[in-house]
Amino acid sequence: MENFKNSILNKCKRHVAPKDKRRGITEKATFAIAFLIFTIYAFIMIYMILWVAMSSFKTNREFYRDPFALPAVWQFKNYISAFEELRFNGVNFIGMTFNSIWYSLGLTVIHILACSATGYVFAKYEFGAKKTMMSIAILAMVIPIIGSLPAQYKLMHDLNLVDSPLVLVTALAGFGMHFIIMKSYFQSLSWSYAEAAFIDGATHFGVFFKIMLPMAKGPALALGIRAFIGYWNDYYSPLLYLDEMPTLSTGLYLYRLELNYASNEPVYFAGVVMSMIPVFVLFTIFSEQIMNNVVAGGLKG
């Protein structure tokens, strides 16, 4: 009886103790190994970033003579030179930044609105073709479409969407993983707010834009920031469809490809560092929202 009482007391003690105090030796060892792996990984990432940042303050000669040494004189002018030297197809660094902004922001806003609209309608409304459309949407996600690039490329040219801001219409895709996430979120929202608004004379659009969409701003913002970062860093689509309007990603890639050995590496690195800053800042500010608001459910139907 005493043993049983002690064991219950021990269990209760374990229950209230902080998590790491409850771990046994094997678990602690496992955590130590994981901590070591994570530390090595973090070191590699920080080293790569710091090395590029440090190299961006060197002269070209210094960079090749001793790539690991600190700059003898910190060349802040490399950052000014980047604005003049880094250009592709007649578009300079400022032009590339402008292209990156409208491309990433436009695609993000349109895509998240499209997914929120479809997600909301599929979560809260009953209509004739709902089940069929849902099945098609899921089927489209799991059918492994390979090699539709030639047709897509031809289609984009035929519709005159290439080298034009009209390329943003490609973001109207309202079915996909983001649709599933938004639909799950809208399903979890209570309908009583909408009912109250309807009784007060609100329209369906009013309920969506003034009540439901603001309530879903957590996941919408999280998905939006992730999408923005993805579009900002995307080089593949702009490479195919925005040759005359290079974004920072494609511009820097093509600049390097074109000049190769003739290029001034530290100035190029200065451009790379500047291209990273906006998304780094954005992610640092919203990292908790991004981490805590993304959950994907199973694919059924």
Binding site: F38, Y41, A42, I229, N233, V272, V279
Partner: peptide, 15 residues
Amino acid sequence: FRFMFFVPTIISGVA
């Protein structure tokens, strides 16, 4: 650490 695992996603593939 979680932030560090995200670094490759935050930075452009080109960079």
